[in-house]
Every structure is written in C-alpha cells, then in structure tokens.
C-alpha cells in the first residue's frame, strides 16, 4: 500500500508545495499534462471536478482521459491519484472506468474474417 500513498502524495505535493493559488496555480496546472493522448491537463481535471464531474466515469467523459490510444495505461494512475487527492482519500471511492477491449490498439484489417462469405453481410 505504501506505493499508492507515495504516488498520491505526488498529486498533493504538486499543489501544496507550490504555495501558489488562483491564477498562478491555474497556469501551472495548464502546462501539466495528465493525458498526453488528448492533451488533458491537470487544470482540466481539477476544473471539471470542481464543476461537478465527480465520478471517474463522468470525469473520463468530460476530459477524455482513458479514451486515447493508451486507454488509461499512462493516465489511469495519475487520474486516480488526482481524484483521490481531490476527495482527500488515498484511493478514489469509486472503481476505475472499465477496461475495454482491445488492450492495445488493433488494426481493423487484423480482425477481418478471412472467409468473406462467412458472417458479414448475411442480412440480405
């Protein structure tokens, strides 16, 4: 469990340590990227949270974290830590957004049934 506390501390330290507030803090959080896939920033997460998107699933939809090519591999932990920090807990109260297939992006052509007569287009 020590490790979660350590990472969670990262989120808190980011804010506490700065001793800055308001505009200065916003400016710093805008340049702190949580989700590189969609350029969702720490500011995006915090302000969406403050606006009321307070569930991991709704925060995901509001900021597009978990929704890029990484599907949460990179942003998932940090997002969880930020949510936890905002909740004042060490882990978010709600479960993480579900892990959807595929685990890594797959080219559509890689999933085509080779026997074209088989299933597709059978509706005619």
């Amino acid at each position: 469990m020590a490790r979660e506390v350590g990472v969670f501390a990262q989120a808190l330290a980011t804010w506490r340590g700065r001793r800055s507030s308001g505009r200065r803090r916003d400016a710093l959080d805008r340049r702190t990227i949580v989700c590189p896939c969609h350029d969702a920033t720490l500011f995006d997460l915090r302000s969406s949270w403050e606006a009321g998107y307070r569930h991991p699933e709704t925060l995901k939809r509001a900021t597009a974290v978990f929704m890029g090519p990484c599907q949460g591999k990179l942003c998932g932990q940090v997002t969880g830590d930020v949510i936890a920090a905002l909740q004042g807990a060490t882990e978010p109260e709600e479960r993480r957004p579900s892990v959807r297939p595929p685990l890594f992006p797959v080219r559509m052509g890689d999933l085509v049934y080779e026997d074209e007569s088989k299933p597709a287009g059978g509706a005619a």
């Binding site: 350590g6 990472v7 591999k73 932990q77 969880g80 479960r95 579900s98 892990v99 297939p101």
Partner: peptide, 28 residues
C-alpha cells in the same frame, strides 16, 4: 514506483462477475 499492468486480469474478473459494473476498485 510503477503500477501493476492489471488490465487483462481486471477483464477476466469482469466476466467472472458477469458485468463490468460489479468489480470494485481496479486502481493500482
């Protein structure tokens, strides 16, 4: 400190639980 790459195991548990809604936690 890295976090476990637990995605596949979580998916296995979703199916075991019959839903994606029922599995608790899932964070590190």
């Amino acid at each position: 400190a890295p976090r476990p790459a637990n995605d596949l195991a979580l998916q296995r548990q979703y199916v075991a639980a019959g839903t994606t809604q029922a599995v608790g936690g899932g964070w590190a």
